[in-house]
Design a protein around this nucleic acid. Structure first.
Length: 935
RNA sequence: GGGCCUAUAGCUCAGAUGGUUAGAGCGCGCGCCUGAUAAGCGCGAGGUCGAUGGUUCGAUUCCACCUAGGCCCA
């Protein structure tokens, strides 16, 4: 008999599997989206609507994607899907950054010894193939994450059209007068033989010599020079003695290029006796130097830094004067408070060189060897020359102390070798010309920065950044398409010539620059307008890749007819405040006057479980491919939404395990809903709702409103928490648990059961839509099981809207009180359960003693109380003073609970205990209620 | 060294214009159920709110400094 009784119940039925099996299912879902062109249909559907353009920052086409790429692309995908479901026209055109040193070096590595013999066009071809290979690899990896977009038509910075735009934008800068060629010390890698962008330099510890060097202060009269400032005039105490300025440096090899000594204008300098000589150092360094260089002599006199300006010293081993100059950058952190200045070998040095009109002197060639100008040192590699120079200093009695020091020093990002600062001929975009810097700063204040501190970060950077060095002495990139007159050295900057070159590149790609002669880019018979020479040469430097990606706003947003300008949002890691956000801003403001983006959202970096950065050496790297293999891309997507990306985010096995649990809960909640809707007829039962059903509907609307707002604020971790809490708290442990009795035991087509199903259906549809931007695979999988849905994909359905008809804060408040009472009953029941007095709560009958307010509230629900508390019988009474042996609530003052065994017998069908069980001769095991259902 | 940022239970996150025992979910522990079952339900234990000073009647919340961590720069 029991079996037959069970057959009369309406138990959940669904083919929707409990086990997600994501690793296997996800590829099937991807195939479904691709074959059925869901992304394309979504675009068509929204084609007439308001645009919401997220412009993709191009990842570098080298290597497999790492976890940071996954974070970035999934965040973008969540936004694009949310906006699209909301009805915005929001196409996503992904792109790749294809030119640049890393690829070229990889190709060089593959070429081995042949690298220097191979033709530039051949090398460029190999670079192109290399980039194409990784574009394909990364494209598949990005698609595997469930990211929707124009994957068939991405933008590549190496496509002809894009290269053409780079040249056109560069020409714009030339025409507007921003571009100049100058000598300037730049980071230079002697090993890679190239200038490096700031972004291409890494800091690492290096051991360097640390030397204190004497520069003798000599009287000018002896050399017969013009009347100059004489130290002995200022400091009469030192007359007749040998006086030295003392400097400290960790780069002795820059001493041959020394042209000056810098003093801080506000520091006090002291003349100290040292044996029979006098040393001059900053007063603030005296204590440290006493120990360091044994400077213990008597302080003879003091002088302000600004009074030393103009005094000349003698270079320790070259026949040359070294001038005393002033610099605010001089610090008392280390050294002597006097800084050796080589304008060709340092940034501050360069600045001061310009100010004092010093030569930007750098007698070092592109391989890091001294040139003829350096005399005896010619041919010596700079770092090796350190030893030679130290020896020379010793011989000249100019060396005070020599030590080794390990300090943070710039290294080449590719070859990892130490780099040098070296003045070279480079191309620059001036940030002062046309007030570019000022305009950028103004634009920064018009942009919405998320988080808000992004504004301060980029503002400070732009405020202090130097001119943009845009040239590179390399092969794999877009050439600086300028033509130089061999006669006078002037560059041809005529608009018509620049435009013709742009056209050439647009049609044939940048390779054409390397195939043809300079004259081929000029009108036939062209002669230099200045000197009438007919002999020309091409500039052979290429452009910084940051210029490539910086003009994506023009190459993609302006040119792709699907897109529009400016972008609504740029979204990248916070390192891009210096990188792409800045190069894009400069590139756009320089030529168009305004920012290319309205909003810039940044995320942090992915750290390991303890917040440390990932590195191969630490062995704490988490690869997205492995998470996908073990848990599925869906878990990665859930992870992205669960973490607060404003700060750095963490990933670890525990985090993934927790999320997998959370995922199961969400999935099972959906499964339960589906199971109980298998026989739903789809009709409207909204007029038959019980109050608890209206409560559930109210909660659902609140959830919808909160989640929508969270998406709009880009607070995706709130989406995750809200959704999960709704499943756990409101649904699983409360509403659905209570509903089981109605769903299972009531007549299948009863109004009460249908009303519940109607609500469940609404919950399922809404939840599925709400989760879709984040857990897309699962949302789509659920969607397939939903009966009577209209759209073939959840992404073609509109994003859920809160139905105001069901919003009911008063009802929610009222039920919050009921739930609080229910929680107290659970505590009382638990005590009895632990005592083995009851097992299942249906074995219990509860009698509640309540304070007046609570009593009045419960009195409204007399008939519903057993269902609400999931007990067989419940009765509320007015509190009647203190009683012994009953549960007294701590949370609700004056509430106590008596738990008794339910009277009667257990109904074999609904499991409730009732005195009516056994009263039916033809169905002795049933209660009154069940008897009436199945009679 | 400079700019910007972060630090609340094992994990992911809330929170307070400064004011009673700092919240949620997960995990964990102990049970119940076996009609969501590689599920479901209940109860419970976990936090000197990174450290130290200061302002205040009162600070985890404001300020300073420090420590740890991150991005960018030198």
């Amino acid at each position: 008999m029991p079996k037959e009784v069970k057959d009369t119940l309406n138990l959940p039925q669904t083919g929707f599997p409990m086990k997600a099996n994501l690793t296997q299912k996800e590829p099937e879902m991807l195939k479904f989206w691709e074959e059925n062109k869901i992304y394309e249909k979504l675009q068509n559907k929204n084609s007439g609507s308001k645009h919401y353009i997220l412009h993709d920052g191009p990842p570098y086409a080298n290597g497999h994607i790492h976890i940071g790429h996954a974070l970035n692309k999934i965040l973008k995908d969540i936004i694009v899907k949310f906006k699209s479901m909301q009805g915005f026209y929001s196409p996503y055109v992904p792109g790749w950054d294809c030119h640049g040193l890393p690829i070229e070096l990889q190709v060089d590595k593959n070429l081995g010894e042949k690298k220097d013999r191979v033709d530039i066009l051949e090398k460029r071809k190999l670079c192109k193939e290399y980039a194409e290979k990784f574009v394909d690899i990364q494209r598949e990896e990005f698609k595997r994450l469930g990211v929707m977009g124009d994957w068939a038509e991405p933008y590549l910075t190496m496509s002809y059209g894009y290269e053409g735009t780079i040249v056109r934008e560069f020409s714009e800068f030339v025409k507007k007068g921003y571009v100049y060629k100058g000598k300037k010390p730049v980071h230079w890698c002697p090993s890679c033989v190239t200038a490096l962008a700031e972004a291409e330099v890494e800091y690492a510890d290096k051991e360097s010599p640390s030397v204190f060097v004497k520069f003798e202060v000599k009287s000018e009269a002896a050399s017969g020079g013009s009347p100059r400032r004489e130290l002995k005039d200022i400091l009469p105490e030192i007359a007749g003695k040998k006086v030295f300025f003392i400097i400290w440096t960790t780069t002795p090899w820059t001493l041959p290029a020394n042209l000056a000594l810098a003093f801080h204008p506000d520091f006090i300098y002291v003349a100290v006796e040292h044996r029979d000589e006098i040393y001059i150092v900053a007063e603030g360094r005296l204590d440290a130097l006493k120990e360091r260089i044994d400077l213990n002599g008597k302080v003879l006199s003091k002088i302000s830094g600004k009074d030393i300006e103009g005094v000349n010293a003698e270079h320790p081993f070259i026949q040359r004067k070294s001038r005393a100059v002033l610099g605010e950058f001089v610090s008392l952190e280390e050294g002597t408070g006097i800084v050796h200045i080589a304008p060709g070998h340092g940034e501050d040095d360069y600045g001061i060189g310009l100010k004092y009109g010093l030569d930007i002197y750098a007698p070092v060639d592109d391989k890091g060897k001294f040139t003829k100008q350096a005399g005896e040192l010619e041919g010596e590699f700079v770092f090796k020359a350190n030893a030679v120079i130290i020896e020379t200093l010793k011989n000249k009695n100019a060396l005070i102390k020599e030590e080794k020091i390990t300090h943070s020093y710039p290294h080449c990002w590719r070859c990892k070798k130490p780099v040098i600062f070296r003045a070279t001929e480079q191309w620059f975009i001036s940030v002062e010309h046309n007030n570019l810097r000022g305009k950028c700063l103004e634009e920064i204040d018009r942009v919405n920065w998320i988080p808000t501190w992004g504004r301060d970060r980029i503002y400070n950077m732009v405020s202090s950044r130097p001119d943009w060095c845009i040239s590179r002495q390399r092969a794999w990139g877009v050439p600086i398409t300028l033509i130089r007159c061999e006669g006078c050295g002037e560059f041809v900057k005529k608009d018509s010539v620049l435009d013709a070159i742009t056209k050439h590149i647009e049609e044939n790609g940048a390779d054409i620059w390397f195939m043809k002669k300079a004259e081929d880019f000029l009108p036939s018979g062209y002669k230099c307008e200045k000197c009438s020479s007919a002999s020309f040469s091409k500039e052979m430097d290429i452009l910084d890749v940051w210029f490539d990606s910086g003009v994506s706003h023009a190459a993609v947003m302006k040119k792709n007819p699907k897109l529009s300008w400016p972008a609504d949002i740029y979204l990248e890691g916070s390192d891009q405040h210096r990188g792409w956000f800045q190069s894009s801003l400069l590139a756009s403001v320089g030529t168009k006057g305004t920012s290319p983006y309205k909003t810039v959202l940044t995320h942090g970096f992915v750290m390991d479980g303890s917040g440390k950065k990932m590195s191969k050496s630490l062995g704490n790297v988490v690869a997205p491919q492995e998470v996908i293999k073990a848990n599925g891309a869906e878990i990665l997507r859930l992870w992205v939404s669960a973490e607060d990306y404003r700060d750095d985010v963490r990933i670890s096995k525990e985090i993934i395990d927790r999320l997998t649990e959370a995922y199961r809960k969400i999935r099972n909640t959906a499964r339960f809903l589906l199971g109980n809707l298998s026989d739903f007829d789809g009709k409207d039962y909204s007029n038959d709702l019980l109050e608890i059903d209206r409560w559930a509907m109210a909660r659902l609307q609140t959830l919808t409103a909160k989640i929508t707002s969270a998406y709009e604020r880009f607070d995706f971790h709130e989406v995750y928490h809200l959704l999960h809490n709704f499943c756990v708290v409101d649904m699983s442990s409360f509403y659905l648990d209570i509903l089981k009795d109605r769903l299972y035991t009531f007549k299948s087509d009863s109004k009460e059961r249908r009303a519940a199903q109607w609500v469940l259906n609404r919950i399922l549809l809404t939840m599925t839509g709400l989760m879709a931007p984040v857990i897309s695979f699962t949302a789509e999988e659920i969607w397939r099981f939903i009966a009577g849905k209209k759209e073939e994909s959840v992404f073609l359905s509109p994003f859920p809207k809160a139905d105001e008809k069901y919003l009911d804060p008063a009802l929610e408040d009222k039920w919050a009180k009921l739930i609080a009472i229910r929680n107290e009953i659970n505590k009382a029941l638990e005590i009895k359960r632990q005592n083995k007095f009851i097992g299942n709560s249906l074995e219990a009958k509860v009698i509640l003693y309540l304070p007046e307010k609570a009593f009045n509230l419960l009195n409204e629900y007399k008939e519903f109380l057993p269902a609400l508390f999931i007990v067989s019988s419940a009765e509320a009474r007015q509190a009647a003073g203190k009683m012994d042996g009953v549960y007294e609530s701590e949370e609700i003052k004056g509430m106590s609970v008596i738990v008794e065994r339910a009277s009667g017998k257990k109904c074999e069908r609904c499991w409730n205990w009732s005195t009516s069980v056994g009263t039916y001769s033809n169905a002795a095991e049933l209660c009154h209620r069940c008897y009436n259902v199945i009679k």
